[in-house]
Design a protein around this nucleic acid. Structure first.
Lengths: 202, 202
DNA sequence: TCCTGACTGGATAGATCGTTCTAGCGGGAC
DNA sequence: GTCCCGCTAGAACGATCTATCCAGTCAGGA
């Protein structure tokens, strides 16, 4: 190892390096498409450390990645949303920001849990529930913002669900087609809908 | 083998059985989450036949599954859409029909290529392009229907992209949360948008 | 009848999978 | 000092992965 790497291993704890490397690999290559050996290499953590920090093995690591990645993404979206002057531009900027991230990472980084969510939906109940919890937390977060903007409770939640769905689907199209148009289009449609309904409320 | 199985192998060609079994497994468990042994078992085809019919191995089989599954799904959606009295109910019935399918298959069967599309987007360029081609064919199909309803070319394509994205994202939420609400909400929002824009066109 | 080629059936190889196990390191408590 | 323990480091295991290989089967044409 070089001095630079050694100093890096001293500053960032091993467990965190493992989590970060696993999150990146799961997000890009999927859960079953990523090997533990690959995670140990990428994080520069010895194999044994993996099972020391995550005694439950790959499944425990997967659950931690889903929940922590989900929370991180929620905070990220909330910071973008809340720094916008109003809900309508907030919605659009969430989608535009997502489009920029996808574009600048060579269409690799998008939703942190999307691939895993689809992979485990029919194969691993523990991880499926973890992804369901994360999606619900996102819906709750968006619902609160729509409600604060004046929408009724029920409609706020419907818009939140539609927003998450549109965001995920647009992510999928963007990564597959190497084109961020879907994100811009979906964001604009959602923003327009919110703006119009907001007008009729007043 | 029992007589029943033998008679079945006589009626359905081996290659088609392999394709069907692979399509079902890929759709539910993903590309890297499905083994060739599993496909050979599920399709009741000997292992050697797999490489006889698909000399390119798993990758060739994967591409065929993506393209054929994509076309089958397009025809299915078109048949639902075209049997509706107008575009607005057509859109809503596509989503409601999808919700019914997802619900009746224990949240397993949804989009035939979604899982694979996300898995291979950053790992396998050949398969990624196959999924991109399929998505584009769906967009073209939906664009034609919106255009036929009176929308301009550009807007028709935007609505088509938003529809596919919303459908895929809602599929994801539904499978993860075991709840078809997202499909109904997204379908209603899309249908409302189309109805309203159609009104202003006249 | 015999040949041919498509297809079946499965053994096998080499790599990699997730997991377990144990030895060694190093710094703080006593 | 010396004991202890969190953590590192990687060998080893059985299972499973994709892919290759070949013998056997069968139908149709020469």
């Amino acid at each position: 190892m070089t001095t630079a790497l050694t100093s890096e291993t001293q500053t960032v704890p091993t467990k965190q390096r493992i989590l970060y490397a696993a999150a990146e690999l799961f997000r890009r290559r999927g859960y079953s498409g990523t090997g533990l050996k690959q995670i140990s290499d990428e994080s520069r953590a010895p194999f044994g450390s993996l099972y020391h920090h995550f005694p439950g093995g790959k499944e425990e690591l997967g659950e931690d990645v889903i929940r922590q990645g989900g929370e991180f993404f929620r905070l990220l979206v909330e910071s973008v949303w809340d720094s916008a002057p109003d809900v309508v531009t907030g919605v659009r900027e969430v989608f535009d920001g997502a489009a920029e991230t996808v574009g600048t990472t060579d269409f690799q980084d998008a939703c942190p849990i999307a691939v895993v969510a689809l992979e485990v939906a029919s194969t691993n109940e523990r991880l499926r529930i973890a992804t369901a919890d994360v999606f619900e937390s996102w819906v709750v977060s968006a619902t609160a913002r729509f409600a604060a903007a004046g929408f009724g409770k029920r409609r706020a939640r419907e818009l939140a669900i539609a927003l998450i769905a549109a965001l995920e689907g647009a992510f999928m199209l963007a990564r597959a087609t190497h084109d961020t148009t879907a994100l811009h289009v979906a964001g604009q449609l959602l923003a327009d809908t919110v703006a119009r309904e907001l007008d009729t409320l007043r």
